[in-house]
Design a protein around this nucleic acid. Structure first.
Lengths: 147, 147
DNA sequence: GACATTATGGATTTTCTAGGTCTATATTAC
DNA sequence: GTAATATAGACCTAGAAAATCCATAATGTC
């Protein structure tokens, strides 16, 4: 049970975008270099973020990415779900498939159901803006440059 | 991000034990049949539960398992950690390895840290006893018998 | 004491998926 | 026209989860 690297990468890429001057277009090359993310892998992640409407893409020469909306209105839950399949602690929590013979009498399921709600609600309450405070990012960049 | 089947199996096996007359010894064969768990796989899980002190084992003919303590004093967190490696939402949350170059300026980590605390605290508050209420189990067995 | 039954322990296999790479195509600034 | 970029998809790889198998030790039963 862990959040994969895709989410980590997505958050870092988005944070980087959030720290830029508004509407500046950032190439994926710059992101991968500054944030130390495998380049081809990032492209797939960005595609997901674009599809979810969190990021605007600018195709063609001098193209790149920029946030589609204010970082304060992007929740971690959105980021997670854009990049990973929907958060599901147990398969049987997926309402679409009622294949479990114990459904209805299983008391375990309600526990995981609540745990899942707990988590998603928490993530829904965290905004990208609160993570990517400019100060932190500036310092982060300086540190990275020194390595 | 999901809890694996090992945890599911462990909870079901423990619930089954909890619903039995106190101190009755249950063979793993009975558990696997009633709870529909791959037999050889269960044996490894039971071993972990024994090692963690949640279950007593009785070796030899007519041997089997019984709860080592009251179901009300077994938390889901214990079960999880007995069977799975310790709950860790992100690798960098493992305090032992401080390899992340962004450590100290990363604002993302504190978010996951809190999410993890949220989860483990919740699991620590759920007892096996609250899951394995006898009524539910009785009904469950009847259902299973009808299949 | 012999035997059947059981847990224990380890080795091994199978299956799945996250993580990562590569290549081809369409789009656009210059 | 050309170089730089995002998009799209196929493809590969390592490692983990899930499951199986086998050999050994312990113990009740006869």
């Amino acid at each position: 049970m862990n959040v994969g690297r895709r989410v980590d990468y997505a958050v870092r890429a988005l944070s980087y975008l959030a720290a830029q001057p508004i509407d500046r277009v950032i190439g994926s090359r710059e992101i991968t270099q500054r944030q130390d993310i495998p380049s081809h892998y990032l492209s797939k992640i960005m595609k997901d973020l674009v599809a979810r409407g969190l990021v605007k893409s600018h195709v063609g020469c001098r193209g790149g990415f920029s946030l589609a909306k204010s970082a304060d209105f992007i929740s971690l839950k959105e980021v997670y779900e854009a990049v990973e399949k929907p958060l599901l602690l147990m398969e049987c929590l997926d309402k679409k498939e009622l294949t479990c013979p114990y459904d209805g009498v299983c008391t375990q399921i309600s526990v995981w159901e609540k745990a899942q709600r707990l988590l998603t609600n928490y993530l829904a309450g965290i905004s990208l803006g609160s993570i990517a405070d400019e100060g932190g990012l500036k310092r982060r960049e300086i540190d990275a440059a020194q390595i």
